[in-house]
Nucleic acid binder design. Structure first.
Length: 569
RNA sequence: GAUUCCGUAGCUCAGCUGGUAGAGCAAUACACUUUUAAUGUAUGGGCCCUGGGUUCGAAUCCCAGCGGGAUCACCA
């Protein structure tokens, strides 16, 4: 990597760092710091005169001669700290206050303070500092927003690119961003405890798989050297969890990082988190009850209420949710009844609705297109859409009352799918046929390779109890619960194109600048126009070069009466 | 993939019909003992995303590229 150009402030901080060392202070001490309190707890449970010891980053400094205020930010928030010169330095030597505190501490530095609690004249809970230690020096200034008296934030660090690339800085300066991730973890914990209390078991299944299954999506491929085989990164964990049901577990669940090699936008990241749960001896009706109770529980755990705001919508996760069959949904929004219709009739109906469909689409796909186009967006409040066409659901049991349908539901919120569940198909012969149909279907139209997972079929042949399974897109769900329109906002480190480092030009002269300088050096002083001619550069290049040379302060340009004279400095 | 907008100081953003780059905050120095967007005075700080073109002259106009946002399309 070439020379990194440091900004003025970064250089200053490095100089301060050396000064701190010269004073015999270690800017990165090894010893633990005996923290015994947190900012938020101190404020919530304020006790005048109590001695506390806390640590964090300095986020603001207000120096007023012999006394100063600063704000310390720890993991729970901020608290004001008060530094008084004569309390901090009771003797003659005022270095600790005048030099170390006032000059060596920058915003962003970690310090630890010990002191007594008090309230200022304006009533702000504060710590009167008796001792402080530098815990870690910060060499790069934080992008610090300021909040004014009316609570308005100025200079907010808002550029999404910078925020995502430097999430660490985003988290330090944007407390609302940190909140999103605190809520994300609360959601996972709430779900986990709900399942555990129901008696189900959290498990782990392979992420590197010889056959990517359980969904139709383009996988990432990698190579295992020792086995010399390709391995695929998981696109779903469904088939593995069902194997465990075959193995005799009553209920298993997994939070699974899935990887799909497809487009990226504000609702798709190449890696995302799904939760899948499979419960033996249940069907999709039971699963609907379970899902609505689960989501109500999670919404309360995350936000303290079943209500959530998403954009312009106010949604309520309070159970129970409306249940609408796909047939009724389409009937309601298009007036068309799909029941008993042939592929041709549905195709024509879709065309008539102005939906972009083609011959490669089977009946199921056509119905899905109609639903996606005309119905989906209308379901704002949590709604179960039930009984999907068979063709779209190769892992789902045929409906007990209608052989064209499956026992499947999706949960829609704000027009988007956040959960998908089945009465799982456990007839091994049917399952094999469905896989084969799927294979044919994929050969008919698209480029996605399909595999038949023979081992999964073997497992089913041993027998799987009737089972219901549910998958929830965790990222989507947390978007709804935190009112974020983009998945990048709910992932700590969303995928981005790699950043380029170290490509900045150093302080040296460029090739062109060197050439021109060499020509000039021979005579020492020249007419500017002569030099331009000799250089043979275009106007643009000439301009850039001469400006560069002046910026490097190696040449002088003087104006006489009628010409410009350039000379070596 | 298509359309569109954006890229200027550490941060947030101005910069007109082309004429040597601006503000606030942050930084530096000084003053100031309960402030809170502390205040006052002074100072420093820029490959104006990159490359090419037009022009006497480009942050500004044109072309290409890179990066990002938004919308749409694709996506069981």
């Amino acid at each position: 990597m070439s020379i990194i150009e440091l900004s003025d402030q970064e250089i200053q901080r490095r100089e301060t760092l050396s000064k701190i060392r010269e004073m015999g202070i270690d800017p990165y001490p090894a010893a633990l710091y005996p923290v015994d309190n947190f900012s938020a707890d101190i404020k919530a449970d304020f006790e005048e005169g109590k001695t506390v010891c806390i640590a964090g980053r300095i986020m603001s400094k207000r120096i007023m001669g012999k006394a100063s205020f600063a704000e310390l930010q720890d993991s729970k928030g901020r608290i004001q700290v008060y530094f008084n010169r004569d309390e901090l330095c009771p003797g003659e030597d005022k270095t600790l206050y005048n030099e170390v505190f006032k000059k060596m501490l920058d915003l962003g530095d970690f310090i630890g303070v010990k002191g007594k609690l008090f309230k200022t004249q304006v009533g702000e809970p504060s710590i009167d500092v008796q001792e402080f230690s530098i815990l870690s020096k910060s060499l790069k200034p934080l992008p610090l927003p300021k909040t004014d008296a009316e609570g308005k934030v100025h200079d907010a660090f808002t550029d999404p690119e910078l925020r995502y690339r430097q999430r660490y800085a985003d988290l330090v300066v944007n407390p609302h961003v940190k909140d999103v991730f605190v809520k994300r973890t609360k959601l996972f914990n709430a779900m986990r405890s709900f399942f555990n209390e129901a008696g189900y078991m959290e498990v782990e299944t392979p992420i590197l798989q010889p056959i990517p299954g359980g969904a139709a999506a383009r996988p990432f491929i990698t190579q295992h050297n020792a086995l010399d085989i390709p391995l695929y990164m998981r696109i779903a964990n469904e088939l593995y969890l069902k194997r465990l049901i075959v193995g005799g577990f009553d209920g298993v669940y997994e939070f699974s990082k899935n990887f799909r090699n497809e487009g990226m936008d504000r609702t798709h990241n190449p890696e995302f988190t799904a939760m899948e749960i499979y419960v033996a001896y249940k069907d999709y009706n039971w699963m609907m009850d379970f899902t609505e109770r689960l989501l109500e529980h999670c919404a309360i755990a995350v936000n303290g209420t079943t209500k959530a705001t998403f954009g312009e919508h106010e949604i309520d996760f309070k159970a129970p949710y409306k249940r609408v069959t796909m047939r009724d949904a389409i009937l309601e929004f298009t007036g068309f009844d799909i029941s008993g219709k042939s592929e041709k009739e549905i195709y024509d109906a879709a065309k008539a609705m102005g939906i972009d469909v083609d011959e490669t689409m089977g009946k199921g796909k056509l119905i899905d297109e109609i639903f996606g186009e005309k119905c989906e967006g209308n379901y704002i409040q949590p709604t179960f859409i039930i009984d999907y066409p068979k063709e779209m659901s190769p892992l789902c049991k045929t409906h007990r009352d209608n052989p064209e349908l499956t026992e499947r539901f999706e949960l829609m919120v704000c027009g988007k799918e956040i959960a998908n569940a089945y009465s799982e198909l456990n007839d091994p012969i049917d399952q094999r046929e469905r896989f084969e149909d799927q294979l044919k279907l994929s050969e008919r139209g698209d480029d996605e390779a399909m595999f038949i997972d023979q081992d999964f079929l073997r497992a089913l042949e041993y027998g799987m109890p009737p089972t219901s399974g549910l998958g929830i897109g965790m990222d989507r769900l947390i978007m709804f619960l935190t009112n974020n329109q983009s998945i990048q906002e709910v992932l700590f480190f969303p995928q981005m194109k790699p950043e380029k480092f170290g490509e900045k030009k150093g302080p040296e002269l460029s090739e062109q600048e060197k050439e021109v300088f060499t020509i000039l050096e021979k005579s020492g002083t020249m007419n500017l126009n002569d030099l331009k001619e000799k250089s043979g550069l275009s106007n643009k290049q000439w301009d850039k070069t001469i400006k560069g040379l002046r910026a490097h302060d190696v040449v002088n340009v003087e104006k006489t009466e009628n010409e410009l004279i350039i000379s070596v400095k």
